[in-house]
């Protein structure tokens, strides 16, 4: 798809010559406008999250005082969640399940995506449609067959039982196929002539080129499993096996929800994920700059 737009002129210009220069003032003005828009959008976007954070620091009474920030923030909710519940255990369970799932999805989905995008073989389109079509089945419909299967195989209340439905995802296959399609065939052909095996082409040539997409897939997969509720709820029986969302759901009961605890637990569940994203986002999203096509 990129072929008509293949570079027509010489390549390899220095980065500083990349962007055409206009008047300095105009550029500065435009950049200021961009920052302003980003900041305004950012405030709107982050507001509900900030409210959650603020609520986590309020006493049950203060929650309903309709003041955004509590006059005397308290760590009681955080303390209660950490010490009086099995939160650390839920956290560890979720971390293990999400990490294992992410690793599995990253490997299989990129391999399948590459195969479907870059290898020509009979049955390719049918296989893609079949895998894609599985995205269209709501999980709600699958949990009972999965449960029956788990009961027969003795997977109920095990870590494998929690994670097996997610070890590959049609979403990821679709995502990786779209990005793998952008890997230039010429590059693969050249490497093939150099004697790289089919798996080597995938692992050494294609995969590094789609690192941003792979990073995105890892983030989404991790988060999806971090927040997964329905299937873990169904397959978990004992308190020791509960994952974060299932544990947090215990704060809602017949006589109402303990919003101060829900918000504290949600905050505790989210902040580490967000911190990792903040630390790694440059490396993962911009990974291509280091490894990619510019060389």
């Amino acid at each position: 798809m990129a072929r008509t737009l293949a570079p027509r002129g010489p390549t390899g210009l220095a980065a500083s010559d990349r962007v055409p220069r206009r008047s300095q003032a105009g550029a500065r003005w435009r950049s200021a406008a961009a920052y302003l828009a980003l900041a305004a959008g950012g405030v709107v976007v982050v507001f509900p999250f900030a409210w959650m954070l603020a609520t986590a620091l309020k006493t049950p009474q203060q929650i309903f005082e309709l003041k955004f920030w509590p006059s005397a923030p308290t760590l009681d909710n955080i303390r209660q969640v950490l010490l009086a519940t099995q939160f650390p255990r839920w956290f560890a369970n979720s971390l293990g399940v999400a990490a294992a799932t992410t690793a599995s999805v990253a490997f299989f989905d990129s391999l399948v995506g590459y195969t479907l995008a870059k290898l020509r073989f009979p049955g390719r389109d049918v296989i893609f449609i079949v895998i894609l079509s599985t995205l269209m089945i709501p999980t709600e419909m699958l949990v009972i067959p999965w449960y029956i299967m788990s009961a027969r195989l003795g997977w109920i209340d095990t870590y494998w039982g929690i994670l097996f439905p997610g070890i590959m995802s049609a979403f990821g296959v679709f995502l990786m196929r779209q990005f793998m399609a952008g890997v230039p065939d010429e590059l693969l052909e050249a490497a093939r002539i150099d004697g790289l095996s089919e798996f080597g082409l995938f692992a050494r040539i294609a995969l590094p080129l789609v690192r941003p997409a792979l990073a995105a897939l890892c983030i989404f997969t991790f988060l999806g499993n971090w927040n997964a509720f329905l299937w873990p709820l169904i397959v978990i029986q004992t308190p020791e096996m509960r994952t974060l969302p299932v544990g947090i759901a215990l704060f809602s009961g017949e006589a109402g929800s303990s919003w101060h605890l829900i918000m504290a637990a949600s905050t505790l569940a989210v902040l580490p994920v967000l911190a990792v994203f903040a630390l790694l986002q440059r490396q993962i999203i911009e990974g291509v700059v280091l490894t990619g096509l510019r060389s």
């Binding site: 949990v143 009972i144 449960y147 029956i148 788990s150 009961a151 027969r152 109920i156 169904i234």
Partner: peptide, 8 residues
């Protein structure tokens, strides 16, 4: 309800 069809 989900546990029942599996005989669990």
């Amino acid at each position: 309800a989900s546990a029942i069809p599996a005989g669990q």
